[in-house]
Amino acid sequence: MLVREWISPTEGQGWFYQCLEETLCPFQWHYHPEFELTFTLRARGVRYIGSDIAPFGEIDLALVAPGQPHTWQANPPEQGQLHQVQVVLFRLEWLDGLAQGGLPELRALRSWLASVRTGVVFSQALAIALQPAFAELHSLRGVPRLACLLNILHALMQDAGARLIDGPGLVFHEDRRLQVALAHLQQHYTRPLALAELAAVAGASPATLKRLFHDGMKTTFSALLASLRIGHACHLLLTTERSIAFIATASGFPSVSQFYRKFIELKALPPAQYRSAVRS
């Protein structure tokens, strides 16, 4: 299931920081209107950002754009160890306020972030270099902590080895009808689902909801439904030994042939080849 995650800013600040130590990172699609910078240590698994699905290693640094479905799923750690995940969430409006309030040096960073539509996976070299900075971010408070965060953000846009995640991305939209429709879609995308059903749940006509998807999120209902289903299928391909036919049905596709066509269209490989390529 994909859930809307509600974020409260750190008290008195325009951004939110969280550090988690876990024995397991479960597969749970979620999204929110903030940018999310995630630094992961002592974990190995699969990272899902929008339609981009890739393995990650012992140290990982990635940025997720607003509104993008994402999750990390890590393998169980070695005995006596815990996964460590540091998360920073913020909105462009926060940087706009700082820039307009006397820090015009942040305009370049703001412009770079505005160009990130889906996400960025940063180089291992940068992740390793920033490990001490993330340790400081966790321990510092007040102005030194803010300065540390801004230095980390500045370093991101200097990373020549960063991989910009392709794709049009989704534009997060706060319209209540669209949010209700998205919540219903995200709970039921693995079963037969039509635009008319979402419209009825949201209290809008199908034509209105279609317009909201187009104008508010720059996508269509069918494209978002297919993306969610293929993301779920990729998760099953990489984490189970289930048959292609089972995965097609479990992901909401009415037929195996339709699943194959859509999978190849979005991932450029048949499902079995994708499973082998990503696992290798």
Rank of each mutant, 00 (worst) to 15 (best):
L106A: 03
L156R: 01
Y17F: 10
F263H: 00
T38S: 05
A277P: 12
I59K: 12
G45A: 04
V121I: 15
A204N: 06
A114L: 08
G169I: 00
A277K: 08
R91Q: 09
W112T: 00
I152E: 10
L178Y: 07
G102I: 05
A181H: 07
S139E: 14
P206V: 00
R91V: 05
M157C: 11
G67M: 01
L92F: 02
L95H: 02
N151Y: 15
K262E: 13
G161A: 01
I49R: 05
N151A: 15
G203F: 07
I7N: 02
L266N: 04
C19Q: 10
Q258I: 09
L266M: 09
G167C: 04
L103R: 09
P270M: 05
F134N: 03
F16L: 00
L103S: 11
L103P: 09
Q79E: 15
H70N: 08
L236I: 08
L209M: 02
G67L: 04
P270S: 02
V64R: 00
A245P: 09
I230M: 02
T240N: 04
S243H: 04
L37W: 06
V87F: 10
E78G: 11
L103Y: 15
L212S: 08
L130Q: 08
L92N: 01
G231N: 07
L236Y: 05
R211G: 14
V143S: 12
A183R: 04
L237T: 00
F259M: 00
L237R: 00
A223K: 01
R145H: 11
V201I: 07
R191E: 15
S139M: 13
E22F: 12
T71N: 08
A62L: 12
A99P: 06
F263I: 00
L198H: 07
T10E: 11
R275A: 04
L98C: 06
L149F: 13
W72G: 11
H83V: 12
A147N: 15
L269R: 01
D60L: 05
G50Y: 15
G102S: 06
G97E: 11
P55T: 09
F259R: 00
G142M: 12
C148P: 13
P26Y: 06
L82V: 02
S8T: 10
E136D: 12
L225A: 01
A54F: 09
F134A: 02
H232V: 00
M1H: 14
G67E: 03
G142F: 14
A62R: 06
S255L: 15
Q258L: 14
L269C: 03
E5I: 06
Q81L: 09
A196D: 14
V85H: 09
V121M: 11
C234H: 00
E197W: 11
T249N: 10
L269S: 03
L113I: 01
A155S: 12
A272I: 02
